[in-house]
């Protein structure tokens, strides 16, 4: 009895994991080699045909490129912003810093749907406040449609995503900054190191492990991000801001082609497993360091 107790305690949690992990993966693999339509039902084995169609589809490669840019560039910029905010908050101005850190974290706490809505509204071509300001300053002409232009749509969504993700980086960096031994700075000050040198030779090296964890986590999360793109552009205009998670929905729930959607899901899953592997390596490295 005593031996089996821990396993018994795990059973409910494991059942749920099977429900969202094991079963869907198996079912996805089966779907992906079959012709499954939401309207016409399952029509049997088609081999790798669904995968072939995906890899021969320019939309897939276009979305893949978008997703990679969105995840990588977006995360890097969010880390930079987060680091800047963390350095500012680390100046320890007492109560003001505490209030400021609360305000700076709000974008992370708010639902992504609300965030997407708010951004869409301030970027509105006719009544948005950003357009009005930029036009008043003579930078753009009035009525510029940032989200309606295939050239700028993805970058606007990315901007919103950066805004939503930087607080996480900020909090992590702030925690990292507070673990840096004060003696290192004191020693450097004795040696007459300037503030800039202290930043590059003490602060940054000490933040290396937290930065790499943040980078991988950020890339994974942004790679999976459906919400911001869907709410702001639905992948449009003309698929210019299409990313892989939105494309899965498009194939499966707009074109009702579950077979092809499942094949794409498997592709996304494979990409994510590689990224997660990287993450595991990183945190394992941190523990042994």
């Amino acid at each position: 009895m005593k031996k089996s107790l821990p396993y018994l305690l795990l059973v409910p949690a494991l059942l749920f994991t099977v429900f969202v992990l094991v079963y869907p993966l198996v079912q996805n693999l089966i779907n992906s080699v079959c012709d499954v339509s939401m309207i016409k039902g399952a029509n049997g084995w088609v081999g790798l045909h669904n995968y072939e169609r995906i890899f021969n589809d320019t939309l897939f490669w276009h979305s893949f490129r978008n997703t990679a840019i969105y995840a990588l560039v977006g995360t890097l910029l969010a880390l930079l912003v987060g680091l800047g905010f963390a350095l500012l908050l680390n100046m320890k101005l007492g109560r003001i810093s505490s209030i400021a850190s609360f305000l700076y974290m709000i974008p992370w706490v708010i639902s992504p749907v609300v965030a997407g809505f708010a951004w869409k509204w301030i970027l509105n071509d006719r009544f948005g406040i950003i357009n009005y300001w930029l036009a008043s300053a003579g930078i753009v002409k009035l009525g510029t449609s940032w989200l309606g232009d295939p050239g700028t749509a993805l970058f606007c969504v990315m901007l919103a995503r950066i805004w939503q993700f930087y607080p996480f980086a900020m909090v992590m960096f702030l925690a990292g900054l507070q673990t840096i031994p004060q003696e290192q700075y004191e020693a450097a000050a004795v040696d007459g190191a300037t503030m800039v040198r202290r930043f590059f030779y003490i602060t940054l090296p000490n933040l290396k492990s937290v930065s790499s964890v943040l980078l991988v986590l950020g890339v994974i999360w942004s790679f999976n991000d459906f919400n911001m793109v869907f709410v702001m552009t639905r992948g449009g205009p003309m698929n210019s801001s299409m990313v892989l998670p939105v494309l899965v929905r498009e194939l499966s729930f707009v074109h009702f082609d579950l077979g092809r959607g499942s094949a794409l899901s498997i592709v996304i899953f494979a990409l994510l497993v590689s990224l997660s592997y990287l993450y595991l390596k990183l945190i394992a490295g941190k523990e042994s360091a």
């Binding site: 992990l21 996805n28 998670p245 899965v248 899901s265 996304i268």
Partner: peptide, 16 residues
């Protein structure tokens, strides 16, 4: 297993 299932993208399990 629990750590990894946290990384799981919704898009890759939604259809099943």
């Amino acid at each position: 297993i629990f750590l990894l299932s946290q990384m799981l993208p919704g898009a890759s399990v939604i259809i099943p």
